[in-house]
Write a protein that binds this DNA or RNA. Structure first.
Length: 397
DNA sequence: AATTGTGCCAACCGCTCAAGC
DNA sequence: AGCTTGAGCGGTTGGCACAAT
């Protein structure tokens, strides 16, 4: 922290790059690969700082960059991923081959944000604005939950990516980043957390996540506060013993049932709930730390810090402990609400065909139970489709 | 034709993280 | 364990291009 910026050195050029400089940089990287960015400028004969060179390369000169207008498909992808990941532009960029995080960020800020706002959708929460105003308290909690869910999931996925990277490093030799024999490796510098990837593993988690929660939101009753989700097609476990991936630790051939048990001071855990009752019960779980049991039997931990709350999650021998620095952060049916929020806004149809006005989507999230379940399913299928079609080396999925 | 406003995008800045020592 | 360094990320800004007045 507090390092002196590398560009502070006198004599270093700033501002727009000239074609000459571009050519020098390109030629150097083509011949030598970039190696150390810090050392590159002097070797390449450039009066720039390494950081500037790196940026120029990653955002402009890289040969695998696609420029020009974003397609409708790309727009939709960005919006959906933004709903899921927030302003994690590099993560989003991993799902848009040939687009840079900078480009996506700019496009979001200049186009998509306005588009959503125009349609009455809050670009931050992806929630219809008028609806957000209806219940300030409830909806702001929703927004907080949404944000936390996204962060939590992102933290989890990042941890996974790290693990994958580590295991990759252990198992194979160094893989040069650029100009190296990895011609099909897109968006190279951006993929810092790229691993060999296991896309299906991440995907499985998403499936599990989706499956468990959407099922739960629909079923709600019968068994108090434990959730039983059937997770099919789970792949092999990660080799690392330290992973949040053990959300669904059972592999193929084993029991495909994931058992999650919330243990809190939940007074509302009586059985026989209706859907709504079930949701209330979820809410009532909010004021304590919860134990989430996984039958993986290994040690896990994940923690994160947001501007609002501290959240730590750890597990030993199959028992997850979720601690929040603020009550109600994960309180309640946050997943239901999370998908609810997304559903209400993921009316991509509405903003792609210019259909509904600002109140569009309001109906879907609060419809009947079966509609709601169908919508949830559709939403997640949507995301899964999206993820399925993403580059296999994506660190996020 | 000149001035002002707006949109857009490349580049910069500051922060964080991770690896190496 | 603590410090230094390299690299990446996300937010912000500067300046160009174009439109409106």
């Amino acid at each position: 922290m507090g390092r002196t910026p590398c560009c502070d050195k006198v004599g270093l050029k700033k501002g727009p790059w000239t074609p000459e400089e571009d050519h020098k940089l390109l030629a150097y990287i083509e011949e030598h690969s970039h190696g150390s960015w810090r050392a590159l400028p002097s070797k390449a004969g450039l009066q720039r700082c390494g950081k500037s060179c790196r940026l120029r390369w990653t955002n402009y000169l890289r040969p695998d960059i696609k420029r020009g207008k974003f397609s409708l498909q790309e727009e939709q992808t960005i919006i959906q991923l933004h709903a899921l990941l927030g302003n994690r532009w590099s993560a989003i960029a991993n799902h848009l081959p040939k687009r840079t995080d900078n480009e996506i960020k700019n496009y979001w800020n200049t186009h998509l944000k306005k588009k959503l706002t125009k349609l009455g959708i809050d670009p931050v929460t992806h929630k219809p604005k008028n609806k957000a105003l209806l219940s300030i308290d409830g909806q702001s909690k929703d927004a907080a939950n949404l944000s936390h869910m996204a962060q939590w999931e992102s933290a989890r996925l990042e941890a996974e990516a790290r693990l994958v990277r580590q295991s990759k490093l252990r198992s194979s030799s160094f893989h040069p980043q650029l100009g190296s024999p990895a011609p099909e490796f897109p968006a190279t510098p951006l993929n810092k957390s790229v691993g060999p990837t296991t896309p299906s593993q991440c995907l499985d988690k998403l499936k599990a996540w989706s499956g468990v929660w959407t099922k739960n939101s629909d079923v709600g009753g019968g068994g108090g506060c434990s959730i039983t989700g059937s997770v099919a097609g789970l792949g092999e476990d990660l080799e690392s013993p330290t992973s949040t991936l053990h959300f669904s630790a059972t592999g193929i051939g084993e029991s495909s049932t994931t058992f999650i048990e919330f243990v809190g001071n939940s007074s509302g855990c009586e059985g026989g709930n209706t859907k709504e009752d079930g949701e209330e019960n979820w809410k009532s779980l909010g004021n304590s730390s919860h134990l989430v049991e996984f039958n993986d039997g290994v040690e896990n931990s994940v923690s994160m810090n947001s501007g609002l709350h501290d959240v730590a999650m750890s597990s030993v021998a199959g028992t997850w402990n979720l601690e929040t620095g603020n009550e109600n952060v994960y309180g309640g049916n946050f997943m239901k609400r999370f998908t609810d929020l997304l559903l209400n806004s993921s009316g991509d149809k509405s903003f792609s065909d210019g259909g509904g006005e600002s109140d569009g989507g309001g109906g879907s999230g609060s419809g009947s139970g079966s509609d709601y379940y169908e919508d949830n399913k559709n939403y997640w299928n949507n995301i899964l489709d999206l993820v399925n079609s993403s580059p296999s080396h994506s660190p996020m999925f």
